[in-house]
Design a protein around this nucleic acid. Structure first.
Length: 417
RNA sequence: GUGGCUGUAGCUCAGUUGGUUAGAGCGAAGGAUUGUGGUUCCUUAGGCCGUGGGUUCGAUCCCCAUCAGCCACCCCA
């Protein structure tokens, strides 16, 4: 294996067997979200770098150190998208969708790119899916999105689901909160880890999801954002929770759940599963009422979530054998004449009967072709050899029972009723 | 970017306290079976022992570097 070209770190080849699993989930995602009236939107895989600077935020890790960016031959600053909310928002604005109708509901499936060290459930090219709803500022819209996220995973029977919700209020309220959080942690500054000390300056909210035991204890007594937000925001949150209670969506209020991206406001949430190791978030999202305005569109409330397909597959524990599509028929032919006949028959069976039909193209012996038919788990074998050609017949063998019947060539389609 | 662990056949892994031709199971191909799979038996193919350098009479094994993979930190889907 010397001197071969290898795939880029953090990317994956999805080989045919595993591909079956991907197809299964992609279809499932489409079916599920379409039931709620959400329609697919597809946006380019790369955008102006500026889009991500303005939406995700310059100080986030994503923008400051994880983006694949380059300057093209025309001197444009371009970036492979690190997520899709920014792209979908850009598309919403550019196509002036707000002028068509009051509400737009989208789902998407596509690759994203972030240059991080690969890890369980984390890759440099990864597949995201998600939904975005534009136009409604009301808590029932939050409830729709959150229940869709939860029920999606629930319907796939994923174990140990954990829906965490919080509200982070308006930007102004958050500033006040961050200030008092700073003051609180400053009191313990000499006890904090060096990482947390840095965060005290750069982003005090991040201290809240520390994994160090004694810092967790400190966090438990830290100020809570709920005490800093406006009555209106509190009411929004409470109404949302009431709806979730009414429709029996089990959630945990996590006062210290903060999302990293700049554009969130009010409701934030995450669905976790402990099947994922350290990267336990299946999906994360929230409301982003400021974003469209900031990107130059008409002020439009919005909410959505993003989820990773790799993590979904990890958590689902679905095996290829659960969904394998066995071929219906394997045609065995061992002479030029037989091969000609097998082509004609195979195409009839494929296009008139909608069967999956396999032909051998290796000029192998009948025995070898039979072995191969067994290997691919074909349900039937059709044998066309000297004897069959002489009598204008074929031999049809049921591979499960071993039964074999001789049929006239013209009777084959009728045999498979 | 930081840290830990791991690199031997397509896959899962043995192995040599440094010593001629590096092994097993599974998988693959062919046969035993005069056109017929699955069980059984036989045979065959397939390895720069991740890569480069060092120590040594001699390295898959020891040392260094490097690359890759996994996991964790950071952060996030």
């Amino acid at each position: 294996m010397k001197n071969i070209i290898r795939k880029i770190k953090g990317t994956n080849d999805i080989l045919p067997d595993e591909s079956l699993i991907w197809i299964y989930f992609e279809n499932y995602i489409r079916d599920f979200f379409q039931k709620y009236g959400y329609k697919e939107i597809r946006t380019p895989i790369f955008e102006s770098t500026e889009l991500f600077l303005r939406s995700i935020g310059k100080d986030t890790d994503i923008v400051s150190k994880e983006m694949y960016s380059w300057v093209d031959q025309g001197n444009n600053n371009l970036t492979l998208r690190p997520e899709l909310t920014a792209s979908v928002s850009r598309s919403f604005i550019q196509n002036q969708l707000s002028k068509q109708q009051k509400s737009h509901k989208f789902y998407y499936i596509g690759s994203s790119f972030r240059r991080e060290r690969p890890q369980k459930g984390r890759f440099r090219q990864f597949e995201q899916f998600g939904i975005e709803s534009f136009g409604s500022p009301f808590p029932e819209q939050d409830a729709e999105i959150i229940s869709m996220a939860y029920l999606f995973y629930k319907s796939l029977k994923i174990k140990n689901l954990n829906l965490r919700i919080n509200t982070i209020g308006s930007r102004e309220d958050r500033k006040k909160y961050v200030q008092s959080l700073k003051e609180y942690f400053n009191k313990f500054e000499n006890k904090l880890t060096s990482i947390s000390k840095k965060r005290l300056e750069s982003n005090p909210l991040r201290i809240l999801d520390t994994k160090i035991d004694f810092e967790i204890e400190l966090v438990k007594k830290a100020p809570r954002i709920i005490d800093y937000i406006s009555d209106e925001d509190k009411k929004h949150f409470q109404t949302l929770l009431n709806i979730l209670d009414n429709i029996n969506i089990p959630y945990v209020i996590d006062h210290y759940l903060v999302r990293g991206l700049d554009y969130y406001s009010r409701t934030v949430f995450e669905v976790q599963s402990d099947a994922l190791g350290s990267q336990n978030a299946l999906c994360g999202g929230g409301r982003y009422d400021y974003l469209i305005d900031e990107l130059g569109g008409q002020k439009t409330p919005a909410i959505g979530f993003a989820a990773g397909i790799e993590r979904l597959i990890l958590a689902s524990e679905l095996e290829v054998t659960d969904i394998i599509n066995k071929p219906d028929i394997y045609i065995i032919a061992n002479s030029n004449e037989a091969i000609n006949l097998s082509f004609a028959l195979a195409n009839k069976l494929r296009h008139q009967k909608k069967f999956v039909v396999i032909q051998d193209t290796l000029r192998r012996s009948i025995k070898s072709q039979m072995k191969d038919a067994n290997r691919v788990q074909a349900k039937y074998c059709i044998i066309i050899a000297e004897e069959e050609i002489k009598n204008s017949t074929v031999s049809i063998k049921n591979m499960d029972t071993g039964d074999q019947k001789t049929k006239l060539f013209d009777e084959v389609l009728d045999f498979f009723k």
